[in-house]
Amino acid sequence: MSDLTVAPHEHGVVRLFALDMRPEEAKFLREPGAIDQLLGVAGLDPEQIDIFPVSDLEDLGLFGYLNEGCGISEDQLDRDALQAIDGWVMVLRSAAFGGHAATLNPDPKLRLIGLYTEDATSWSGGVIETDSAKPFSAPQGSTEGIGQPHRIGSAILALVILLAVGGALWLIL
């Protein structure tokens, strides 16, 4: 599989493209369907595509954007090569493909810089061996009084209703 082939249900992959075009052309790529045409695919989710000039990143830089913003590990990134990139770039996340397979046929104005994978969260863990983690280890409280009406609250409510009815009758008579 090449860097321009998207597997079905691909997840956590980020493709970085340099845009060899004028700023006006790059800004136009934010319009619906424009990226689809330049990549030769249809139905991309524009929310999963970032297009911006590298200068907008200021001190963070492209290295920081990919590392801190996209969750790409430092060992995948070449800091010097990323610092050398200027102009406009496009960051294309695999979520843009909506779980569908695709083969990208990019326009010559798009140059693939790299393909990176986001750090995955490890959801595995060891066995918890504390007493509180054992089933039914919570203290068993008393169930006395559960489900029985609170007689004081009911009595006060009845008294308020009687006073309201008595007051209404007094006004009428």
Rank of each mutant, 00 (worst) to 15 (best):
V6R: 03
A7C: 04
A7T: 05
H9F: 08
L19M: 09
R22Q: 14
R22A: 14
E25C: 04
L29G: 04
E31D: 14
A34R: 13
I35N: 07
L38E: 09
G40I: 04
G43E: 15
D45S: 14
D45W: 10
D50C: 00
D50S: 11
D50M: 05
D50L: 07
I51M: 07
F52L: 15
E58W: 06
E58F: 09
L60T: 13
L60H: 08
L60K: 11
L62Y: 00
F63Y: 15
G64T: 02
G64Q: 03
L66C: 01
G69D: 02
G69Y: 00
G71H: 02
S73L: 04
E74A: 08
E74N: 07
D75N: 08
Q76T: 01
R79T: 00
L82H: 06
L82P: 00
L82N: 05
Q83D: 15
A84W: 05
A84C: 06
D86Q: 11
W88E: 09
A95G: 10
A95P: 00
F97W: 01
G99K: 10
A101W: 04
T103P: 00
N105K: 07
P108D: 15
P108Y: 14
P108V: 10
L110E: 01
L110I: 04
R111V: 02
L112D: 06
I113Q: 13
I113L: 08
G114V: 01
G114A: 09
L115Y: 08
L115A: 11
Y116P: 01
T117D: 12
A120K: 05
T121M: 11
T121C: 06
S122A: 11
S122T: 08
S122M: 08
S124T: 13
G125K: 10
T130M: 09
D131N: 09
D131R: 06
K134S: 09
K134V: 03
S137H: 12
A138K: 07
Q140H: 12
Q140P: 02
S142F: 09
S142D: 15
S142V: 03
G147R: 09
R151N: 10
I152C: 05
G153F: 07
S154L: 14
A155D: 09
A155I: 00
L157A: 14
I161G: 11
L162W: 04
L162A: 15
A164H: 04
G167A: 15
A168N: 06
L171F: 07
